[in-house]
């Protein structure tokens, strides 16, 4: 397809990045919401993106999962150019997205939600004569256990608490068996106990999965993170460990006057 255009710079690192963007830019009415972002996420990495409101973090995730089409630039998943191939095709190629406000199938049970998510034969005619099982598969039990939903399998999603909804969406994304998981503020609106559990869950995921997280809460970020990418006015401002970021003069300057880093 577009393989001809494949840039050759990737070979420099020993482990080729699983996700890579090049000059990724999107403009809304000429206003650049995301500018020239070159992101490179290694296999198995847990990366956190921070930045003030309006820095372009969520828009970046929207670009990666196909919700928004980039004005310029390319997105590569391993050696496949997934720019502009559509949300469903991007999802099938291995990108899983969890939104800030949980989007799940409210009128369906937890089990049904997981079944829809874990079904990897997605075409109409593949599903025409397929029956649905009344009890969870081993895989569905495993993912429910991991996210603490095993006791709620038969409950409707609309009956779950906010924290449980967040975990259900995460469980659905996990059921997709994605190559990379995009999480938009996974601990938003959670109680302290739920936040703790979410942090544990993310650390548990890291290693086995490649995860890209947007987060506001710096305490939470310090807990889960190795590499942080700071976004400011649509562009990448800095990249490094938590200590490096907090010492970085550009980052400090960008946050001066508005808010301190811990509240960013």
């Amino acid at each position: 397809m577009n393989a001809v255009h494949r840039p050759s710079q990737a070979g420099a690192v020993s482990t080729a990045p699983i996700l890579r963007t090049q000059n990724l830019t999107v403009r809304f009415d000429e206003f650049p919401a995301v500018r020239d972002v070159d992101l490179s996420i290694a296999d198995g990495e847990l990366r956190v993106i921070i930045g003030a409101n309006g820095a372009g973090k969520s828009t970046l995730l929207d670009l990666l999962c196909g919700k928004t089409l980039p004005s310029e630039g390319e997105i590569w998943l391993r050696d496949r150019n997934i720019t502009g191939i559509g949300e469903a095709a991007i999802a099938r190629s291995g990108v899983g997205r969890k939104f800030q406000t949980p989007t799940v199938f409210k009128d369906m049970t937890v089990l049904e939600n997981l079944q829809v998510a874990s079904n990897r034969r997605v075409r109409v005619f593949e599903n025409l004569f397929e029956r649905v099982k009344g009890r969870p598969s081993d895989k569905e039990v495993a993912v429910a256990e991991r996210t603490g939903l095993l006791g709620s399998m038969k409950r409707k999603a609309s009956e779950l608490s906010h924290g449980q909804l967040q975990w259900l969406e995460l469980a659905m994304v996990l059921s997709q068996e994605p190559k990379i998981i995009l999480l938009d503020e996974p601990a938003a609106g959670m109680t302290a106990a739920e936040t703790d559990k979410t942090a544990e869950l993310l650390l548990d995921l890291a290693g086995g999965h490649t995860v890209l997280v947007i987060e506001h809460d710096m305490a939470f970020v310090r807990r889960i993170c190795r590499t942080i990418t700071v976004m400011h006015q649509g562009a990448v401002l800095a990249e490094g460990t938590a200590e490096e970021i907090e010492r970085n003069p550009a980052v400090i300057e960008a946050y001066l006057g508005s808010a301190t880093l811990s509240h960013a």
């Binding site: 999962c65 949300e87 469903a88 999802a91 199938f105 829809v116 998510a117 075409r123 109409v124 659905m172």
Partner: peptide
């Protein structure tokens, strides 16, 4: 939208 992000056309 969720169905799309799960890979369904």
């Amino acid at each position: 939208a969720r169905a799309r992000y799960l890979g369904y056309d």
